[in-house]
């Protein structure tokens, strides 16, 4: 289908894939919000104004245009809190996903490339890991490590390296049978060099897809942990904290729950669409 466009640069094709474009827009917005948070936010996200608590979004009856998206029970500005929440979400997504990818990819490549005992050991570990309920495991981990962003990130890495490991292992096994590997063997490259210099570049497209999807998962996990009260301190504006607070006033002020939920849903949909879009674009290449 894409044979006519195969020679165009990859970035061009990704930007012209509607889903990928949507995902890039969402990701771009999050980046902007995260980087420019101090300038974009109309208020200090922690500033309380008890006189104007529970204000609805400005387009609603009783809304105040100063508080565009309304205020919470302590009169804090929701818009500002959401913008700062994007910052936490993005930090967690980037760091946790990259670290999980690193761990999972190295183990997956070793298992796929060397086979035998190495493979058995790693695959068995993955099996055992998969027999835990991931959510429960992450909660346990954070509970034991003590709440905080670093604990959230470590928990995500400890749990989600298996996602990378399984897929990368399978793909490495496929790549191993390719001609370029046997020709590298015949010219006398060492196995480690073949693995990292010859095989690894062929795994990169797949890795990018997995990484994008994992960022979505990391955002959800952070939200979940905040929601359970185990992420950062509860007055720090994260989407999960906002959800947790909003849930207490669900009938009184449903927008307190609705807005952060909408943010998380958008972020997750965007990252998923980006992953799917990139996969669609690079798939013919990986298949060849």
């Amino acid at each position: 289908m894409s044979d006519g466009r195969a020679d165009l640069p990859l970035t061009y094709r990704i930007v012209h894939e509607p889903r990928a474009l949507f995902g890039l827009c969402v990701l771009g917005l999050m980046f902007l919000a995260a980087v420019l948070a101090p300038w974009l936010s109309p208020h200090d996200p922690l500033e309380q104004d008890l006189l104007s608590s529970f204000l609805p979004p400005s387009w609603k009856e009783n809304g105040d245009p100063v508080f565009f998206l309304g205020t919470d029970n302590l009169g804090r500005d929701i818009a500002s809190r959401l913008i700062y929440g994007a910052r936490t979400a993005l930090i967690v997504a980037l760091i946790a996903a990259t670290m999980a990818a690193l761990l999972g990819t190295v183990l997956g490549m070793l298992a796929g490339f060397y086979g035998g005992k190495t493979d058995m050991l790693i695959s068995r570990a993955v099996d055992i890991w998969m027999s835990f309920p991931a959510v429960l495991l992450s909660i346990v981990l954070v509970a034991v490590m003590g709440a905080g962003l670093h604990a959230v990130i470590i928990a995500i890495v400890i749990i989600d390296w298996t996602r990378f490991c399984r897929v990368i292992r399978a793909e490495t096994m496929v790549q191993k049978e390719r001609d370029y590997v046997s020709s590298a063997v015949t010219i006398g490259l060492t196995r480690v060099r073949i693995l990292f210099q010859e095989v690894f570049p062929n795994l990169v497209p797949l890795l990018i897809v997995l990484l994008t999807l994992e960022m979505g998962i990391a955002i959800v996990v952070e939200t979940i942990l905040s929601f359970v009260g185990l992420s950062v301190a509860s007055d720090t504006p994260t989407w999960g904290n906002l959800i947790q607070e909003g849930r207490q006033y669900i009938h009184q002020a449903p927008w307190l729950l609705g807005l952060p939920v909408a943010c998380v849903v958008m972020a997750v949909l965007g990252l998923n669409a980006l992953g799917d879009g990139i996969k669609e674009v690079i798939d013919p290449e990986t298949r060849q």
Binding site: I224, L257, V261, V265, V268, L269, N272, D276
Partner: peptide, 23 residues
């Protein structure tokens, strides 16, 4: 399917509460 698959159960639960429990 594509939209449904992307959203985890946790977010479905909150969204459903908002839609069918509150709105």
């Amino acid at each position: 399917i594509g939209v449904t698959v992307a959203i985890p159960d946790f977010l479905w639960a909150l969204s459903l509460i908002l839609i069918l429990g509150v709105a």
